[in-house]
Design a protein around this nucleic acid. Structure first.
Lengths: 250, 250
DNA sequence: CGGAAAATTGATAATTGTCAATCGTCGTGG
DNA sequence: CCACGACGATTGACAATTATCAATTTTCCG
């Protein structure tokens, strides 16, 4: 298990594999130039590595370039709550960068590569590139929106509804990123991750997922959850699904 | 019940009653000048008025000048989840302003007065006042942090711990705003609000609060919760409490 | 005074958690 | 190639927590 990430120079932003996705809003040439300058390299982690730890002063700001991870907090006695998942295009470490210490940890679910940005230059970003500054706020507001949904789900949905919501949520996020191109759609989480996201015990989570499988909505596959019927999941959760217009990528 | 707010010219920012609080970071003269110009008036609501409704296009951006409110979402069948509370100095409507439609509603707990900002001028804020833009992002990150804590609480704490956490959280936020100057400390919520925040039923919430009262940690007073032993609540919740350095006010 | 909203209570039911195994898969070392 | 061990999934039995139902009581206000 790699805990320290491996640093490399990485690919230049102009060759960014993410930016061409239809999901992301177009980027002005000067913005691209600035971001290229803002990025100082890449950091690679293995699956289950700790990317950022609670209590750390984060020196840098990151964008996920590839891979899946999750943000979580723990209580003193070890109870863990997964707050949200991070996927390509997500910004990571912003809370820590703005407010000092990280108040949550981030762990890799699969091998993860981050773009590394120099914290010092953030002021320059705000000074010289108001559009990018706006984008940062936008991205923070988007995270808030996801957390609102999660809170609603954990607080008020039943176990089955909650599970359906979570799987549908992850499926849709990954689908818009075109992570399922290869034909099947496996979300790389264990049932323990699902349990820690839903606020349920592992045993009850297992029984709940079985119910969803019995309805033909999903199947538990090798190393994750294979979605069979996204519409069924959405209906069961009573959720409209993600409504994401074009979003910024930094 | 007032649903439409009453609009007035309001007090000029230079006489803002909030800004002098030690909680808020100092403000440069030019920032004050811009914000004065950014603010177009005030909007007053009565207790239990709907300040913003899910689905609305919000024309404006607001800062709470006085009063308590809460943000919430509902499922189709009426189940309600309170996401967070809003208090003086909090920004309201940012999600809607940035991303289009509001995805949650906001209701007043007590009479509330908002400062109203012209949405159109937001671009100008980003262009001309990078420090204020930074503050906006900072405030969004702060909200995210509070939501993280809430999520941890709802997902992983027991009913009693959850209730203790919530009351301590609200108490501390109000205390830093010096809302309890008059000697006693009553949080203006009903048990239904507590229930909808904790994700519990009203009956079980009542029994849970009784347990806290039996331990001498609080008492249910007229129109709210009177905190008797904040340290006891913090200890019971296993929570360190709010750690807020100076924060920006817009 | 009357009525409505909020708080309280006890009884009972449903949901979810805990315990204790078992099973399956997979990678490693012999 | 096979045994071993680790981790994750699965199960059944039972316990604890939380929800629901159905009153009552209390408080608040016009």
């Amino acid at each position: 298990m790699i805990t320290e990430g491996k640093f490399t120079k990485g690919t230049p932003c102009r060759d960014c594999p993410l930016r061409p996705l239809p999901l992301f809003r177009p980027f002005k040439a000067e913005e691209l130039a600035f971001v290229s300058h803002f990025k100082i390299g890449e950091l690679a982690f293995g699956a289950s590595a700790t990317i950022l730890a609670e209590g750390e002063q984060s020196e840098h700001l990151f964008t996920v370039l590839s891979g899946w991870g999750f943000r979580y907090k723990m209580l003193d006695d070890g109870r863990r709550q997964i707050l949200n998942y991070v996927m390509p295009g997500d910004i990571v470490g912003l809370q820590g960068t703005l407010m000092g210490e990280m108040q949550h940890s981030i762990e890799a679910l699969s091998p993860v590569v981050l773009c590394v940005f120099q914290r010092d230059r953030l002021a320059e970003l705000y000074r010289e590139h108001p559009d990018l500054a706006y984008d940062l706020t936008w991205i923070a507001a988007r995270e808030e929106r996801m957390l609102d949904e999660n809170l609603l789900s954990i607080g008020r949905r039943s176990a089955v509804e909650r599970a359906a919501y979570l799987i549908a949520f992850l499926y849709q996020r990954a689908a818009t990123l075109e992570l399922f191109s290869s034909g099947w759609s496996v979300i790389p989480v264990t049932q323990q991750h699902v349990a820690d996201t839903l606020g349920l015990s592992i045993v009850h989570t297992n029984k709940t997922l079985k119910k969803l499988a019995a309805r033909g909505l999903l199947r538990w596959a090798e190393k994750g959850c294979d979605v069979h019927d996204i519409d069924g999941l959405l209906a069961l959760a009573g959720w409209d699904g993600l409504s994401e217009p074009k979003r910024p990528l930094i």
